[in-house]
Write a protein that binds this DNA or RNA. Structure first.
Lengths: 207, 207
DNA sequence: AACATTGGTGCACTCAGTATACTCATGCAC
DNA sequence: GTGCATGAGTATACTGAGTGCACCAATGTT
């Protein structure tokens, strides 16, 4: 992983072959694939665990907690975890940069996230079977993860450091979860009615 | 495209090599890549135009149309276009099925959609520069496309025919656009009815 | 007739990823 | 200690996606 991140940042992802990485790490190319299923995965060693966090947060909810709160909790735990890379010192930041700049890796991350949505949506539906059907659950989770990833990538591409980026992700979650509030209100009044916003129009996390 | 869709459904995507497709279409492998940049693209010939539709819908908006309406318009034109494949007869349905079942293609679609978001978000921000900053625009568009794709894929995976699937996509758009309404409220005096949130940290994104 | 353009071809190449068959060190049973 | 299972790594050769390049043929164009 160290050798890979270093070479990728030095020469670019496409210009770095697996053979290069293997040589720099003093192993054979075959051994590389013994540890990482694909070239992209060398940057994604940990991605899987975040999903479990979200599912866990939903399944272990307080029985009659409002959906909005449960989802907020789930997203918070996921966002908190994104920071915790297992890379040494400065490599984590470089890796994040590579994630958003390298198309192949980006596609992989998106796909992983997308398939994860299915699991999260299933957990959500199971938690609120009366309020949600499959497709609505999927839509909510899709909006949530879509908003958060878009915010994260845009923030990183604008060169923002980790902390404002996390703030932006939370703000994005707020945006996506707006609809859910209307599901939580006990009386099913029409949600098309214009309402006052939450006070802040579009207060950017930083400027 | 015909040959590819046929072979993919017969033998599966991974089991079909580009050479197979080329031979079945009576051209050389080299010619295949003259028409399609990658193997995945043989299923995605038209994807690019949809983004233009959305951007167009935003740029050509009525000057003081509410954002919600503009975005609804944009999504409607995109969704309407998804049906209009240029494939002959029944192949379009098979193609849709392949899109949601083949991981490699799925990843590519997601990535294409994702990069498209940047353009749409830029157009949106340009249209409402006072209300939106970059990241908020990206979040809104991300929520929108995230919700729609999730709904579409889930619906197709449940085996629903095209028409209910489109309906589900529209419903998903409604969900995602819920937040935008609050931005559209014409009166800037907000103290009318600040909705009490449900105990959760309904954090106003900033002071 | 000379020429350029366009669409297609053949061939050789790089690189990701896999299959197979090997080596080698470690641990352990007897 | 000898025999042996096991796990981690290796060398080699393969498939298949995608590219670079030189070439060809048909269709305009002047």
């Amino acid at each position: 992983m160290n050798a890979a991140v270093r070479l990728f940042t030095e020469q670019g992802y496409d210009q770095t072959s697996v053979a290069d990485i293997a040589e720099a790490a003093d192993v054979s190319k075959r051994t590389f694939f013994l540890h990482f299923p694909t070239k992209e995965d060398v940057l994604l060693a940990d991605a899987g665990t975040r999903i479990d966090l979200a599912v866990q947060a939903i399944e272990g909810r307080h029985p009659d907690a409002p959906m909005r709160e449960v989802l907020a909790e789930a997203t918070t735990s996921m966002i908190a975890n994104t920071a915790a890379g297992d890379l040494p010192n400065g490599l984590a930041a470089l890796r994040a940069r590579l994630l958003v700049t390298t198309p192949a890796v980006q596609a992989r991350v998106l796909h992983t996230t997308f398939t994860a949505q299915t699991r999260i949506a299933a957990a959500l539906r199971k938690a609120y079977p009366d309020t949600l059907d499959e497709i609505t659950a999927a839509s909510i989770v899709g909006a949530l993860t879509g908003a958060i990833s878009a915010a994260a990538v845009t923030s990183l591409q604008l060169g923002k450091p980790p902390e404002p980026t996390r703030a932006a992700m939370h703000h994005a979650a707020e945006i996506a979860l707006h609809y859910v509030e209307s599901l939580d209100t006990p009386n099913p009044t029409e949600h098309a009615a214009p309402r006052a916003s939450h006070g802040a129009k579009a207060t950017p996390p930083a400027r």
